[in-house]
Structure formats: C-alpha cells, structure tokens
Amino acid sequence: MLSDLPGDEASGAAAPGDSPGEYGQGFSWVEGEPGSLEEVIEAAFDYRGDVTVLLKDGQELAGYLANRSIGDEGSSGSWIEVFPASGDPRRRIPNAQIGGFRFSGKDVASGKSWETWLKKYTERKEALARGEEVENIDLFPEEHG
C-alpha cells in the first residue's frame, strides 16, 4: 500500500541515537545509515503518531506502529504490527522486509494541551476577579497537541 499521508517532512532528520528528542515528527532512517533497525522500531513503538514504513520492495505503509516482537537482531521471528492510517486491517510485517522509517504523523503526546488549559484557566480567573462576565471554558480532546 502506498503512503496516503502528505509530505515526507524528512528535512532536518537526525540520525538515531543522537538523543531521545530526535525521534520527533520528520525523523527518518533508512538501512545503511547510523543506528539499527531495532533501535528505530523501539522509537516508533513509543511514538504516539503515525509512521511510514519503507519496505524493501519499494512500497510504503503509513500507520500506527502498535506492537513489535523483541527478537534478536536479524531474527526471522521479528516483526512489527501496524494499524494502517487508511483504516485497513492491521498488518504484520517481518523486520527482514523493512528498509526504513519516516516519522510522518504528528506526535499527539508531545503537545501543549496542559499549558493551553492553564493559560485559559488563568485568564478566566483573572477576568472573574476583574468582575467581568465570562463563559465556562473547556479543552476538547481535539486540542491535544
């Protein structure tokens, strides 16, 4: 399946292992670059956004990496499990078929929703203290990130 996510956003990509913070949206890695496939898979598993799996046969699969086997490097039993962004059924891919990754989707756990809420809340309290009439406030889930 070809990727259906817009843009690679690979510019400025860092090599794996530089620092944990480098595994953000836009990070990419292909076989042969510094770092190991297993290391990148662990980062992708921890990432709360979609990734694009670059398969050795030239196809790409965009989706959420929800699980992986933890086998020895190169083990034939090693695989990843991806929930495609297209909504297709989950797909299990042997590590041996993977040529690279792009962290293509937004990391929805890296946002500023807490700071946003605190700012709204503080502003409302200040408005109330000034005697102004203000409506109830909220932070909807869509604002995560």
Partner: peptide, 22 residues
C-alpha cells in the same frame, strides 16, 4: 481509546485520529 474529555493526568487517549475512531 476515544474520549470526550482531555484530562491533564491521563495518558490513555493520545493516539492518531484513525486509532481513536476504532
């Protein structure tokens, strides 16, 4: 995983939209 709140201390709902729909 879908929720109608976004609580400050919750780490259960931070997933891409297509996962939240499932």
């Amino acid at each position: 995983f879908r929720c109608n709140l976004a609580c400050a201390g919750c780490g259960k709902i931070q997933y891409p939209a297509h996962i939240l729909k499932q």
